[in-house]
Design a protein around this nucleic acid. Sequence first.
DNA 1: GAATGAACAGGTTGTTCATAA
DNA 2: TTATGAACAACCTGTTCATTC
Lengths: 126, 126
Amino acid sequence: MAEKQKRESRGFMLKQRAFLKLYLITLMEKKKAYGLQILDTLTETFKPFGYQPTHSAMYEALYDLVEDGILHRQEIVPPHDRFKKLVYYQFTDDGADRAEIYKKQLKEEIDRCQGLLQQALKDNFG
Amino acid sequence: MAEKQKRESRGFMLKQRAFLKLYLITLMEKKKAYGLQILDTLTETFKPFGYQPTHSAMYEALYDLVEDGILHRQEIVPPHDRFKKLVYYQFTDDGADRAEIYKKQLKEEIDRCQGLLQQALKDNFG
DNA sequence: GAATGAACAGGTTGTTCATAA
DNA sequence: TTATGAACAACCTGTTCATTC
């Protein structure tokens, strides 16, 4: 009955989703924030590199972190509210610990990707 | 009537396809080769980085280069043939020139990606 | 307009099957 | 088994639409 089978990564580059999750964790360590606020920060950070993430990419990453049990949602109705709600995110009880584990993985993954790119420069532009 | 609309890249990482095309060009500069032979070479090169491209990924990249007018196919029936055919690839007349242009683009793209990864290391593990 | 969210569409990539010697 | 190729399925990502203030 339509067993959905997993697909293995062949280990090329890290995925945008993972990359954004890493940044979201680090931003949350600094201070609580809500969606589009975060996106603005990221957009500024990545502008020099010609990377402009979409809002849906960011939301997907955010949902992932909630599903991973790292963050939880906190809806806030701002005072003098002009807006219905803002959704702030912050760490769950053991979220910080889990986040550390995730970050450690990503560190290795980024190092690996840099190695691969470095090798490509050597091999193709020797 | 179902105008198929292009999707723009938001400029995250370079794609596997482009990465492989770059390697294929460089390998072809060194010597003619056929599909699975190339894959073996690539597999060896990338093994230290945990990247193992599939044969279909490589074929796709190869077809792309043919469509770009950079390479052309040359079917060869090997002497004492145990196999029906091997498909060797080599540069078209202006293929080498086009290849240089492509390589220049990829050089910039790889530099950009390295910058992005470097920034991520600084921002998240600084 | 700012903000969140979901649906949809397009493209890339990994797995599998087909064919041939 | 080696080699090429194609079909298919899963996934990722970008665009668009819906909704609320």
